[in-house]
Design a binder for these strands. Structure first.
Length: 741
DNA sequence: AAGTTTCTACTTTTT
DNA sequence: GTAGAAACTT
């Protein structure tokens, strides 16, 4: 086991100071790659080993499960199994646990379920409809973000301004929304924080209990905290305030979620006695990359100046390059990765491609697919957002808490069991009239049926039968919960609900959905040994609070594609940032607000500082966005990079194409177009297929061409395939040939 | 009740 | 261009 010497060994002076300043508030301003995780973990180890703090008195808070896991792993290496006594977790997970334990004092049911953003949106929509409002004037999305912002600032409906009619309406929707949450025994993400803060405010005994329990608190990514989180930490730290926070204003990129980098400055005001430690020495990137990063971020005004440095002078110059369009951009990325790998300069897995919006991944993926090169995609459709996963989880959620109306609405007719819109609407209205949750209404229906007592209800005999069957299914599953472990329960759900048969319809998509469910089953296996009731609670909590960036697979040697946001906290030897264009990075939505513009700049800074050795910055001459192709302007951020850091531009050899010869996409430089056996060369502007042609497709079989037209240089063919249906294909990509007449 | 067409909006998204 | 929801058919 490491002793004190080892704990401090290899740390620079600033890092050592941070580790050893044990008492009172400490603010560490840590630039990218400055070893902040190291400081955090070594400080914990130091507290335990050298300062004799019992591990269970230490709480370390992170934003992501991944960061929490990483911290645990490192602390296992430093402390051995003692690390288990530490409280390490995300804000949300820690709050969820406190609320479960203190449910009574917090005035909530210990059986509460956690609503994710999809559930939240359904609930807001319901609230808007309950109030007979027009959801075109009051868009659920924007209302939800207002509600969320309010909660992040610890504002209840009553605290909200109601100066205008619109504000008044939003306030009422918020009120109704909270009412619905309570009715469903549910908390949303924001509630986890807000209810905990309220609990600590209201209940001195509970607050004192947790203050005593955790005299040492450490918080990572301080610049990403919102009001509620700041307040929570302040309440937990109490007057003693052995509070250690690490952050970097320059890496604050979550303002849109309520994060407020000014919490860094606020900390200095609230704790004027705080020790402030600056970590500027960078252990990640070459000086070339750091100089570029410094130049980009220096233009932000709302920051404390900080200058990253490294003893590693020099490094390969930054490559800035223009592609003709998004398609060529993808090809250039793939070609360059291939070149680096072939020349032994990097492994494929060392490379990352970053972009501002998820929509940009498409053409990049296409390029990888055409080159036959594997890649890893982060984000996009997240595992727990997949329909089949949410459906199955809804069943489990209902078993746990049958009053969860959103879950019930989700699966009452999935798989189809003859309970249509009309019946569902009638059921909801009926339950509302009776003033009971939907599940209770179903039970009343079932009881009346059994006892033969008359009961006023709006259903026809068929609808009633369907509802009774569904109620019986639910009750069977709820009863089964006691005898079965989580795995058996899940299997029973899949069988008895008919979901398994419903999903496995023989189609390849069905199989892949089923595989996702099997993956969920694997996740459930970890909980199978726990006692049935707590297993379900724990499992649902875990899946509600886990995102799947957490499951980024690090073993496969393939490039990673991800948004700039998802890249935070990661590092790669080779980084490509694509789409460095005005209106994309910086994004069009941020153009007229200087605050948001600064955030765009920070986002760019975060991307650049992910690179260890090589950095490529790409933009296009023209790009198709929302189906509209337009000429682009290179990003203003590119102008901020001193030219001596940039490799001399290699001009495209092909003649500069002009925006108006749109039928001639710039992808004819043979070298950059990887050979693909199924690719048909389309260098003519004339279509290869015409209406009535008979074709043979490798997957869909024989078909007849219905229509063919040129769309931006691609031939788009609509074909009716026998027994398959009508498909729209791109002639140059589809494995399809014309049959002789 | 289920399938089909039309409308609409569209960053980022740690939990 | 496209996904998701609502409106409209069958």
């Amino acid at each position: 086991m490491p002793n004190t010497q080892d704990i401090l060994a290899g740390l620079n002076a600033a890092q050592q100071e941070a580790v050893q300043t044990v008492e009172g508030p400490v603010l560490v301003l840590a630039g990218p790659g400055s070893g902040k995780t190291r400081v955090l973990t070594h400080r914990v180890a130091y507290l335990v080993r050298e300062y004799g703090v019992p591990p269970w008195q230490i709480m370390a808070v992170t934003f992501t499960n991944k960061a929490a896991r990483e911290m645990k792993e490192r602390l296992y290496r430093l402390l051995g199994t003692e690390y288990r006594k530490l409280t390490i977790g995300t804000f949300h997970a820690i709050c969820a646990r406190i609320l479960r334990r203190e449910a009574e004092a917090a005035h909530i049911s210990p059986q509460y379920v956690i609503y994710d953003s999809g559930d939240q949106q359904s609930l807001v929509r319901r609230a808007i409809r309950d109030l007979d409002l027009d959801d075109k004037r009051y868009r659920p999305r924007s209302i939800l973000s207002r509600i969320s912002r309010a909660k992040n600032e610890l504002l209840t409906p009553a605290d909200l301004p109601a100066g205008t009619y619109r504000e008044e309406v939003i306030r009422r929707i918020y009120e109704r929304y909270q009412h619905l949450l309570a009715e469903n025994n549910a908390l949303d993400f924001d509630d986890l924080l807000m209810k905990t803060v309220q609990l600590f405010h209201r209940n001195d005994a509970v607050r004192a209990k947790y203050q005593r329990r955790y005299p040492f608190i450490l918080v990572d990514e301080w610049q990403d905290t919102n009001m509620a989180q700041y307040e929570l930490v302040k309440l937990l730290a109490g007057a003693q305030a052995n509070l250690f926070v690490v952050g970097d204003e320059d890496q604050s990129i979550y303002a849109f979620r309520g994060a407020d980098y000014r919490n860094v400055a606020r900390f200095r005001q609230d704790y004027p006695q705080a020790r402030v430690i600056l970590l500027e020495r960078n252990y990640r990137s070459t000086q070339v990359i750091l100089d570029a990063a410094n130049a980009i971020i220096a233009r932000n005004t709302h920051r404390h100046p900080k200058r990253l440095f490294t003893p590693q002078e020099g490094g390969p110059p930054i490559v800035i390059r223009e592609a003709y369009d998004e398609r060529e951009e993808g090809e250039l990325v793939v070609a360059e990765i291939r070149r680096l790998v072939e020349q032994g300069k990097a492994r494929a897995g060392d490379c990352a491609v970053m972009y501002r919006t998820n929509a940009q991944s498409r053409p990049i993926e296409d390029a990888f697919v055409q080159a036959g090169m594997p890649y890893k995609l982060v984000g996009a459709t997240r595992f727990y957002e997949r329909k089949e996963i949410k459906d199955v989880l809804a069943y489990l959620r209902l078993i746990h808490n049958p009053y969860d109306g959103i879950g019930l609405a989700r699966i009452i007719n999935v798989p189809p069991r003859a309970i249509g819109k009309k019946t569902v609407g009638g059921l909801n209205r009926w339950a509302a009239e009776l003033g009971v949750p939907v599940y209770a209404a179903l039970q009343m229906l079932a009881e009346a049926e059994q006892s033969g007592e008359p009961l006023q209800h709006p259903f026809g005999p068929r609808a009633k039968r369907s509802l009774l069957n569904f109620a019986a299914l639910l009750d069977e599953l709820i009863r089964a919960q006691q005898q079965l472990n989580l795995l058996e329960l899940l299997d029973l759900v899949l069988e008895r609900s008919g979901y398994k048969a419903y999903i496995r319809d023989g189609s390849p998509e069905g199989e892949s959905r089923w595989e996702n469910i099997l993956e969920l089953r694997t996740a459930a296996r970890d909980f199978a040994d726990l006692p049935p009731e707590s297993a379900l609670t724990a499992f649902l909590e875990e899946v509600a609070l886990v995102s799947d960036v957490d499951n980024l697979d690090e073993t496969t040697d393939a490039p990673t594609l991800l948004t700039l946001h998802a890249a935070k906290g990661l590092e790669f030897p080779v980084v490509f940032i694509v789409g460095l264009e005005e209106e994309l990075l910086p994004h069009a939505r941020s153009m007229d607000d200087p605050e948001q513009m600064e955030e765009e700049r920070r986002l760019c800074y975060v991307g650049v500082t992910r690179a260890k050795e090589r950095l490529y910055l790409f933009y296009t001459f023209r790009r198709t966005l929302y189906g509209e192709s337009a000429v682009r302007i290179p990003s203003r951020f590119l102008e901020d990079i001193p030219s001596h850091l940039v490799q001399d531009r290699v001009e495209n050899k092909a003649p500069r194409r002009t925006p108006w010869d749109s039928g001639f996409p710039g992808r004819h430089r043979a070298a950059s177009v990887p050979f693909s056996p199924q690719r048909r060369t389309t260098n003519s502007l004339s279509p290869q297929f015409q209406t009535g042609d008979q074709v043979q497709h490798d997957v869909f079989g024989r078909g007849t061409v219905i229509e063919s037209r040129m769309v931006g240089g691609d031939e788009q063919v609509t074909v009716a395939f026998a027994g398959v249906g009508v498909k729209r294909l791109v002639a140059s990509l589809a494995p399809m040939r014309r049959l002789p007449d």
